[in-house]
């Protein structure tokens, strides 16, 4: 079932890669290259899921997650962090900022879409 996914990421190659993977499984992908852009886009289009890079110039992923959670319209939307931060406490920090999931980079291209879809289905249950 096709769903709309917002992906906030500043790295062009990663943006292309993940957009390609998601689209190849039939999902719609909206791209944002910064926190501000992503928050504005999320407010307008109300996606089914938001994928979020953590290391972004300016506003970082934790801050974006916190801002997104302030918008009552986006309350039920799962936010999944996709990050190459892998130090102690990174996952906890992401969850504390309001993320629902955490996928470490580099992604496994064979399982990535299923991992994302798992959060979509969890969102349906909710």
């Amino acid at each position: 079932m096709a769903r709309s996914i917002l992906y906030i990421e500043d790295n062009e190659q990663n943006l292309y890669l993940i957009t390609f993977l998601l689209k190849s499984r039939g999902h719609e992908v909206a791209q944002a290259r910064s926190g501000e852009e992503g928050i504005a886009l999320a407010g307008r289009s109300t996606p089914d899921l938001i994928l979020l890079d953590i290391q972004l110039p300016g506003m970082d992923g934790y801050e974006i997650a916190r801002q997104l959670r302030l918008n009552p319209d986006l309350r039920g939307i799962p936010i999944v962090a996709v990050t190459s931060y892998a130090m102690v406490g990174d996952k906890e920090k992401a969850l504390a900022a309001g993320c629902d999931g955490y996928i470490e980079k580099p992604i496994n291209p064979e399982t990535f879409v299923s991992q994302v879809e798992a959060h979509l289905n969890a969102g349906d249950v909710r």
């Binding site: 890669l17 993940i18 390609f20 190459s84 892998a86 980079k105 291209p109």
Partner: peptide, 16 residues
């Protein structure tokens, strides 16, 4: 982080 970002592309595109 810096090594993983390009590696993400390599592994990802190879996988695709």
């Amino acid at each position: 982080h810096e090594l993983r970002t390009p590696l993400n592309s390599i592994i990802g595109f190879t996988g695709i």
